[in-house]
């Protein structure tokens, strides 16, 4: 459903992505892992249609990726992109007005699950609760593809735990495919089906996580470290 064919991306004179090829299997949770600056966010933005490849093709459901991909893709940015003068409730309403596939009932369920107060203003939320709100808005959409850029970064262990539990509870793998970039591999390694390692803009390897454990007796962190050497 999503494939990248010989994709390269150059920012001025810096090559961010070098001729990568890969396809995503539907119904899976895929982790894209790698060091800072290795090209994780760029890959996500290419799939989301937020940036265009310098070379190669990004296909989503067989069509070339462009800005209209947002209809099929729920994208969680690593930045905070919400109107700070809205309350949590107003933010949910605003999102519901922007996306056809936004399920307000589901949003309310996830809000309750995450213990968020609907009346609170976004600018008064703690960083952890802003992280939780992003999860609510991303998962409340019934989009076939969910892209999450560093959903756990900079959050404390309790928040990370509630986010991981929220992902398991509210993702529908019969109809959704999820791609997550992260540094917090330990937190999500029990959650992944597949893991892709990226270094200097190139995909080093893509494997099924249970195969890595079965064949090599390695955890994902150990496997990635081995590949990076």
């Amino acid at each position: 459903m999503i494939s990248l064919e010989n994709v390269s991306k150059r920012y001025l004179n810096k090559m961010a992505i070098k001729e990568i090829n890969f396809g995503l299997e539907p119904g899976h949770i895929i982790g894209l892992i790698g060091a800072n600056g290795s090209g994780k966010s760029t890959t996500l933005k290419l799939i989301a249609g937020l940036i265009r490849p310098t070379k190669g093709k990004v296909l989503v459901n067989g069509r070339a990726s462009n800005r209209f991909n947002c209809r099929d893709i729920s994208y969680l940015s690593e930045l905070d992109v919400y109107y700070s003068f809205f309350t949590v409730e107003e933010t949910v309403k605003f999102y519901a007005s922007q996306y056809k596939d936004f399920n307000t009932k589901k949003a309310q369920e996830i809000l309750t699950f995450m213990n968020l107060d609907p009346k609170q203003k976004v600018k008064h939320l703690s960083k952890g609760n802003r992280g939780r709100l992003k999860i609510v808005l991303t998962l409340a959409r019934e989009a076939p593809v969910i892209l999450m850029d560093e959903p756990l970064s900079g959050l404390d262990p309790m928040v990370r735990d509630s986010i991981v539990k929220g992902l398991i509870s509210f993702i529908d793998l019969e109809h959704q495919t999820v791609l997550i970039t992260t540094h917090e591999i330990k937190e999500i390694e029990q959650l992944l089906d597949t893991v892709a390692v990226i270094k200097d803009g190139q995909i080093l390897d893509i494997q099924n996580v249970e195969d890595i454990r079965f064949r090599e007796n390695l955890s994902i962190v150990e496997w990635m470290t081995k590949l990076y050497q």
Partner: peptide, 17 residues
């Protein structure tokens, strides 16, 4: 499958397997 996945904190596909 989903209940077990949430309880154990693992991917639902893993529980299925």
């Amino acid at each position: 499958v989903r209940e077990m996945a949430v309880q154990a904190g693992v991917n639902p596909n893993t529980v299925q397997r």
